[in-house]
């Protein structure tokens, strides 16, 4: 996904009040403005959709055609093929990179979720000295750009004999994700009524039982929200992958494959379009399926400060 992270938002999260449609508003002037408004909206929507649509159509056209004419000519002279997809898998070895993208992404989502849930619990529900200060420090670490850490991290990995393995990418993504994950999950945890925790304590439950029996079930939406963020972020990342994975198909993900293809075979439009479309389709499906959680995550930063 984009480099956009959810920020603390001063948006009230009360559900929108049932819309009271003002029937009287339907006078001529308003109808006119609303017609212009609809047209403007349609124009924007088309502008935003056409580039992706063009890529999708291009990926299905014969290689020679993509060099000879624009994708829009297909409508008058339709000719489609799946050969580009076959080629990009068989001749260019996209399959290994596709596998790598999954192998990279899943632990990079699970590891920070595990560690951040523990830390967020401590920050939210365990009393200890210096808690607030420590939380502010973790929160502040969000603003460190990952560029600042890359070269020293690479050297660390080399001296730990991890260079060129998945571990470099898993660990880097996990570390970079922790501050935001802790912040988000902490905010959700604080939303849970104190009485619930107190009652569990009265019943003799320790932190472990409280964590698993009381909090975890209630936290599922928060974990899902962060999980989607992190999934999109890691799947779409180029910088971390380029730095640690090299260009070969041993550990490098799809983004590196596409970027290299664009660099070395920038004129092979038919391969480029098919490869790019494959790399796009997975996050788009995840995104559309879980949009609800994603939006909630975006807006969640500011439930409580």
């Amino acid at each position: 996904m984009t480099a956009t992270t959810p920020a603390a938002l001063p948006v009230t999260t009360t559900p929108p009040i049932a819309v009271t449609v003002n029937a009287a508003a339907g006078n001529a002037k308003n109808r006119l403005t609303s017609r212009w408004a609809s047209m403007a909206a349609v124009v924007l929507a088309v502008l935003w959709t056409i580039p992706t649509f063009g890529l999708a159509v291009s990926s299905l056209r014969p290689a020679a055609d993509t060099r000879r004419s624009g994708w829009w000519t297909t409508f008058t002279d339709p000719e489609f093929t799946l050969k580009n997809y076959r080629d990009v898998f068989s001749d260019n070895g996209l399959g290994a990179f596709f596998v790598n993208s999954f192998v990279i992404t899943i632990p990079s989502v699970v590891i920070p979720l595990c560690l951040a849930s523990l830390a967020a619990y401590a920050f939210a529900w365990v009393e200890f000295k210096g808690r607030n200060l420590l939380f502010v420090v973790v929160f502040a670490l969000q603003i460190v750009p990952i560029q600042v850490t890359l070269l020293p991290l690479l050297k660390l990995f080399v001296s730990a004999n991890l260079a060129g393995t998945f571990w470099t990418i898993w660990l880097s993504h996990s570390v970079f994700a922790l501050p935001l994950a802790i912040f988000l999950i902490h905010n959700f945890m604080r939303e849970i009524p104190k009485e619930l925790i107190e009652a569990a304590r009265m019943d003799g439950a320790g932190h472990v039982q409280i964590f698993f029996r009381v909090l975890l079930p209630l936290l599922t939406p928060a974990l899902a929200a962060f999980g989607i963020f992190q999934f999109l972020w890691v799947w779409n990342d180029l910088l971390v992958a380029l730095t640690f994975a090299g260009g070969g198909d041993a550990v490098a993900p799809l983004t590196v494959f596409i970027a290299n293809l664009a660099g070395t075979r920038g004129t092979a439009l038919h391969l480029l379009s098919a490869g790019a479309f494959i790399s796009i389709i997975v996050p788009v499906v995840v995104f559309l399926a879980l949009q609800r959680y994603f939006v909630r995550g975006l807006l969640a930063g500011g439930l409580k400060g």
Binding site: T2, A3, W48, T52, L238, A262, I280, P283, V286, L288
Partner: peptide, 8 residues
């Protein structure tokens, strides 16, 4: 939708 698409 473009938000789900990588920069690459």
């Amino acid at each position: 939708l473009p938000m789900a698409i990588s920069f690459v």
